[in-house]
């Protein structure tokens, strides 16, 4: 990284925040070790539980504030699934809601100081994207059989072009999980790294006010990015689901 600028006075470690560390002791990171990943994913689960379960325990016809937020997020995703994937996509609504709630809470909680951004890791977003990719492909073949391959055969195009288009469609289909996961992880990682770099500049007294302003501005942007990326991930999932349910263009 760019450590040559200010010599030894500044120490830039923008990527240190992403290191996966064991919560207890300093041992190796095995697959079962409770790490900061575990902690912050558990925080996300807790936050989701507080909002969607504890917040709605009143089951009020006139909702409380928390119940109102829970209902809004429910309605938001429900409508998105219905609008994008269609009525038959509503069967997968809990699955998509799970993805959205996890990503939006993991993103938002990672903005707390000293927290850990689990969604900035391609391991996490890659699994999410692959899960969507595999699920959607299986649904496509189960619902439409071989007809699912019609997704790649653009019948609107002139006949000589169709094989070429089919090739492009197949490639783009398989690139989906890559772009789907890198988009989220890249956005999260970049934002957090930039904030960290600005924070390192705050060590120089002359630059520090500017640095603080820049951090505040980046933080505002990151709050937006946290929600928007969750929204983008979810709506793309809905689009892929629509392709699986109705593969014909």
């Amino acid at each position: 990284m760019a450590t040559e600028e200010a010599g030894s006075a500044l120490s830039f470690h923008p990527m240190e925040q992403f290191i996966v560390k064991p919560l207890f002791g300093d041992g190796p990171v095995n697959w079962y070790t409770p790490t900061n990943v575990t902690l912050w994913m558990a925080m996300a689960v807790l936050a989701i539980f507080l909002m969607l379960v504890v917040g709605t325990r009143g089951r009020a016809v006139v909702p409380s504030r928390m119940q109102s937020i829970a209902e809004l997020s429910y309605g938001f995703i429900h409508k998105m699934v219905e609008d994008v994937a269609g009525k038959d996509g509503l069967k997968y609504f809990p699955y998509i809601m799970t993805l959205f709630m996890f990503i939006v809470f993991a993103n938002s909680l990672s903005l707390l100081p000293m927290s850990f951004a689990s969604t900035s890791h391609v391991a996490v977003t890659g699994v999410l994207a692959l899960a969507v990719f595999i699920t959607v492909t299986v649904i496509g073949f189960v619902k439409n059989g071989v007809g699912f391959l019609g997704l790649f055969w653009v019948s609107a195009a002139p006949l000589p072009l169709r094989p070429i288009l089919a090739l492009i469609e197949v490639i783009s289909y398989f690139v989906r999980p890559v772009s789907h996961s890198i988009r989220l992880a890249g956005n999260m990682m970049a934002g957090h790294a930039v904030i960290e770099v600005f924070a390192a500049f705050a060590a120089i007294a002359v630059i520090s006010p500017l640095s603080v302003v820049a951090i505040a501005a980046m933080y505002g942007l990151e709050v937006m990015v946290a929600v928007i990326q969750a929204y983008v991930f979810t709506i793309l999932t809905c689009v892929y689901l629509k392709d699986a349910l109705h593969p014909h263009h």
Partner: peptide
């Protein structure tokens, strides 16, 4: 492996609580 394991646990818990 660590991240993937805990992600799987998290997703299962969230899915269970939600559904």
């Amino acid at each position: 492996p660590n991240q993937i394991f805990w992600l799987a646990v998290t997703l299962v818990v969230i899915y269970w609580v939600l559904s």
